[in-house]
């Protein structure tokens, strides 16, 4: 008896499913022309635009090295043939801490 009832139930379910598939139209698209889909719209591509406040911090540390080497042969004040070599080295370190 139980087997018979079970078989009837299965047949009934199958019939119900077949009827549903035949009678109910295909599932409506998640997003319709006339309305928005509230949840599944999260899935997929998107574009966005925003305005924002920005705070910028910055650091700078500058190091300048400069070499100057000049040789003069025949300085007018010293006379022809006089040789003078002037060597200058300059080193500048600049440091600016992060601005907050």
């Amino acid at each position: 008896m139980k087997k018979l009832l079970g078989a009837v139930a299965v047949v009934s379910l199958l019939a119900t499913g077949a009827a549903s598939a035949a009678d109910v139209p295909a599932a409506a698209p998640m997003v319709t022309k006339s309305g928005w889909a509230p949840v599944n719209a999260w899935d997929g591509a998107y574009v966005s635009g925003a305005l924002g406040l920005i705070r910028q911090h910055a650091d700078i540390n500058q190091n300048v090295s400069s070499a100057f080497n000049q040789t003069t042969i025949g300085d007018p004040l010293l006379g022809a043939g006089a040789v003078t070599t002037n060597i200058m080295d300059q080193h500048i370190v600049r440091y600016g801490r992060r601005a907050r």
């Binding site: 719209a41 899935d43 997929g44 925003a50 924002g52 650091d59 500058q62």
Partner: peptide, 22 residues
Amino acid sequence: DVRHVSASTLELNAGITIPLGV
């Protein structure tokens, strides 16, 4: 002249998103 530069930024943005599928 060598300049060692670094920076950091903090942003707070408010905006809208448009799903392209929609």
